[in-house]
Amino acid sequence: MSAALETVLYTAKTHTVGGRTGTGKSSDGELDVKFSSPGSGKPGTNPEQLFALGYSACFIGAIQVAAGKMKIKLPEETSVDAEVDLGKTGAGDFQLAVRLNVNFPGLEERVKRELAEAAHEMCPYSRMTRGHVSVDLKVL
């Protein structure tokens, strides 16, 4: 069961034509991309790359909120490397799997783990995928 929104803070609006070999753009003109199928060697990005970028950016935002609540100063070099796999299940259905590699240079191991776990609880992407997509969270 999904949680209903009480307040909408932002709505992203996009228009896509042609699917994995087409184009897409945002209503504000800030994003305008050409798509190509993964491994095709043709110019363009793919939905998995866009998802990885969105997830990693959102996850860092959640880390920043968690650090603020915990009164921890984050290193400027804090980063998330996201890997999104597109594959098939045993039943032949397409499915995604995610790996988030979180780097907090200079922080204690316990603090790193606490921040990553707190971010994973509150990040909207993590909440959206929970129970539906395998997410492997690794703290470097």
Score class of each variant (00 low, 15 high):
P105F: 07
K138V: 15
E77Q: 14
K112D: 10
K112P: 01
A119L: 09
G106R: 07
G106W: 06
R20P: 07
E77H: 12
A97N: 01
H132P: 01
D28E: 09
T89I: 11
G18T: 11
T89D: 12
F35Y: 03
K42D: 11
G41S: 06
G106V: 01
G90P: 05
P38C: 12
G39W: 02
L53R: 11
Q49A: 13
D85M: 14
H132Q: 13
D81C: 08
L115C: 01
E77F: 08
K25D: 13
H15F: 14
K71A: 13
I63D: 00
L53T: 06
V17Q: 15
R113F: 06
P124G: 05
N103V: 06
E108K: 15
E6Y: 11
S56F: 00
T78Q: 03
T7W: 09
S40P: 05
D32M: 09
R20V: 02
M122Y: 15
R110L: 11
P47M: 06
S79R: 15
V17I: 15
P75R: 04
L5V: 04
G18V: 06
L100H: 00
P38S: 08
F59S: 01
A62D: 00
P43E: 00
V111T: 15
Q64G: 09
V17G: 02
E109N: 13
K69G: 09
I60T: 12
D85R: 15
Y10V: 08
V135Q: 08
L53D: 07
H132G: 11
E30G: 15
V65I: 13
D81G: 14
